[in-house]
Design a protein around this nucleic acid. Structure first.
Ligand SMILES: [Mn+2]
Ligand SMILES: [Mn+2]
Ligand SMILES: [Mn+2]
Ligand SMILES: [Mn+2]
Lengths: 217, 217
DNA sequence: ATAATTTTTTAGACAAGTCTAAAAATAATG
DNA sequence: CATTATTTTTAGACTTGTCTAAAAAATTAT
């Protein structure tokens, strides 16, 4: 149906659409896929032929319903594989992304259904991101950034905004894991850093960190 | 390191080498990969550049040590994934090959090591074929074809020569599975068919079937 | 040993996906 | 509004892997 390359473009557009409501620019796609704008133009024409995106010259692209469903299915596979790697193969959450990037392209509906079942039909991946269902529907939760909490507010850590290995390993080092309760003890106006309590431990967290941790109140 | 296509060529040559001791002909590779001889010549030159095969014009190819090791590792991955699909995801043995053809190209040493461990370090795949170890060594067993048994000889069913879905489903229908004991009650000289006993059941088996079932005495 | 047949290689072409450099369109600025 | 600056598209080229058709080599048959 779709080549590996086409799938990667669809997924990139899908993610970009989720944080912006306008059409997605050629440059944005190029940046996200670490390729050149001219390559994107070529591919976007092909995707338009296949009716998974709407494309008009100089106007950016948007996914069609078919495109959204296709992309959501790739994301579903990516996240299910991430759960598998962590739950069944003892990978840590900072090691799974690269492998899942490969596994998400395996074509076998039965494989994914059975994997889903083996894992107990998980709703979120190891980074707290929701796993789309078979029809591509996603359960969007009302998570907010830790940086938006005021003094004395509490919340449960439910996800990360940046899922780079570096950030995840930093969180491991600080013993910050999903599911833990975080309380903001102090906000430092000078540098927007937070003094928080987690698991009985008190620690200071920079603005950058607080901007990459999702909390559910 | 190697592209998907290169890996498929290496694996094909590896399998062809195992049933013949001469250099592997261009045509044999083409047939096995369902491609054209001219494409094989091109690819074989590339593999020769990469020092995984020895190639001299009109002489056929042989794998180098590096080539053998590389190919064995792909076969290892293929067979481990087949075990996974059957043992963990409830695939039947006639459904696994196609998916394993894709999964065998996933690049992640940790993934394979952990998978091996999850599966309890299996030595054979669902079709009775041996799983090469990390260094590419294979435990070749002294299995023989059922068709070579004489009257009143017995053996354990340990593998299949033909692993097509059609043949495997035929075996399922006849309740012939790996590990079962087979006794040859009669040999029919007329058509080389066998009258066998398996699991208390007596049945007649054509020459073609007997030529595709491996037995260990 | 010569001729016919088969196998293998070469030559040239094509599709997919990418790139650089240049042109065209759009957006930003004074 | 006219001029820059930026973004996007086009044109042409390259790589990988494939194909067809023709040439060359090896094999088989007469
Ligand atoms: Mn990921
Ligand atoms: Mn993830
Ligand atoms: Mn197989
Ligand atoms: Mn097998």
């Amino acid at each position: 149906m779709f080549t590996l390359s086409e799938e990667n473009y669809l997924k990139a557009i899908y993610h970009l659409e989720s944080d912006s409501n306008k059409g997605i620019s050629t440059n944005a796609i190029a940046k996200s896929l670490e390729t050149k704008a001219s390559s994107v133009t070529d591919m976007v024409k092909k995707l338009s032929e296949k009716e998974v995106v709407i494309y008009k010259k100089y106007q950016g692209v948007t996914l069609t319903e078919l495109g959204k469903k296709t992309a959501a299915n790739i994301v579903r596979k990516h996240r299910l594989w991430e759960v598998f790697l962590v739950e069944k193969l003892n990978f840590s959450w900072d090691e799974v992304h690269e492998v899942a990037e490969q596994l998400e392209h395996i074509k076998s509906p039965k494989l994914i259904n059975q994997l889903d079942s083996l894992l107990g039909f998980p709703t979120h991946d190891p980074h707290g991101d929701p796993i789309p269902d078979k029809d591509g529907n996603v359960n969007t939760v009302d998570k907010i950034l830790l940086s938006t909490l005021s003094k004395n507010e509490k919340g449960i850590c439910v996800g990360v905004n940046d899922s780079s290995s570096e950030f995840l390993r930093f969180l491991d080092k600080k013993k910050i894991t999903l599911g833990k309760k975080i309380t903001v003890l102090e906000r430092e106006d000078f540098d927007d850093s937070l003094f928080i309590e987690i698991d009985g431990e008190k620690l200071s967290i920079s603005k950058k960190i607080a901007n990459n941790l999702y909390i559910k109140k």
